[in-house]
Amino acid sequence: MIELEDKYVFHIPLYKYKDDELVVIEMDGLLDNLISELADKGFDSFYMAEVKSFYKSRIYDEILITVFSPKDKSPLEIFKKWFRKNNHILFQEAFAFEIGDKMIVEKF
């Protein structure tokens, strides 16, 4: 039996707020890069769900990637690095992720 004790949920917006309107983000290659990076580091079993989110009076779609991992291995730095590297495209003021039962928002 395998036990994966830690749960991470990465929030990936599919829209950016630019010039007072929501604009679709071109995610084709970006999301593929994150998935490949996770898989390359051994996180090859996770799930993704598209959800409606609400932030500052705006409703938009986002993808949640949920990864379960053992205590001695974390996908968090992969996600943080990916988000920071691509924020010139994602155009977000902050990014969010969950660890266990906690939501964490990091501003740029």
Score class of each variant (00 low, 15 high):
D32W: 14
D101H: 09
D44T: 11
S45Q: 15
M27R: 09
P75S: 03
I12M: 02
R58A: 07
P13Y: 02
L76N: 01
Y8R: 09
F79E: 00
F108K: 09
E106H: 13
P13S: 01
E93D: 11
G100F: 04
K7T: 08
E62H: 11
E21W: 15
V24K: 13
K41V: 07
D20H: 14
I89Q: 02
D32C: 08
E62L: 14
M48F: 05
W82M: 01
S74D: 04
D72E: 12
S57N: 08
F68Y: 07
D40E: 14
E62W: 08
K41T: 06
G42S: 06
K81W: 04
K107Q: 10
F108Y: 12
F46C: 00
I12T: 03
K41E: 09
V24L: 13
K107R: 14
M1V: 15
K81N: 12
D19K: 11
F97T: 00
V51A: 07
P75C: 02
E37G: 06
I25E: 01
E77V: 04
K56T: 07
F68P: 04
P75K: 02
F97C: 01
S69P: 01
K80D: 04
E93A: 12
F54S: 10
E3P: 15
D44H: 13
F95M: 05
D61P: 00
A94T: 13
E77A: 14
L30T: 01
F54N: 12
V51H: 12
M1T: 12
F10P: 05
F43D: 06
I25K: 01
I78T: 04
L31K: 10
D20M: 14
K41Y: 07
E21H: 14
E21P: 05
F54D: 06
S69K: 05
K16V: 01
L34S: 00
P13L: 03
E26L: 09
V67M: 00
D40R: 14
M1E: 13
G29L: 01
R58F: 08
L38E: 02
N87A: 02
S53R: 15
I35T: 08
H11T: 03
K71S: 11
M48I: 10
G29P: 06
V51G: 05
E77P: 02
I12H: 04
E3D: 13
K73S: 04
V67L: 03
E21N: 14
V9A: 01
Y17P: 10
G42V: 03
S57K: 15
F108D: 05
K7D: 13
G100Q: 07
F108W: 13
E37C: 12
E3H: 12
L22G: 00
Y15M: 12
A39W: 15
S36F: 04
Y55W: 11
I35F: 11
M1F: 15
D32A: 10
E21F: 11
S74L: 00
I59A: 09
L22S: 03
L38W: 03
D20C: 09
K52H: 08
A96K: 12
A94P: 03
E50R: 14
F83S: 00
I78N: 00
Y17T: 05
W82Q: 00
F43H: 05
H11S: 02
K7A: 08
I99F: 09
E98M: 06
Y60W: 06
E93N: 14
L90T: 04
F91G: 07
R84A: 10
L4Q: 10
P70V: 11
K73E: 05
F79R: 03
K80W: 02
T66L: 03
Y55V: 02
A96E: 14
L64I: 08
V9S: 00
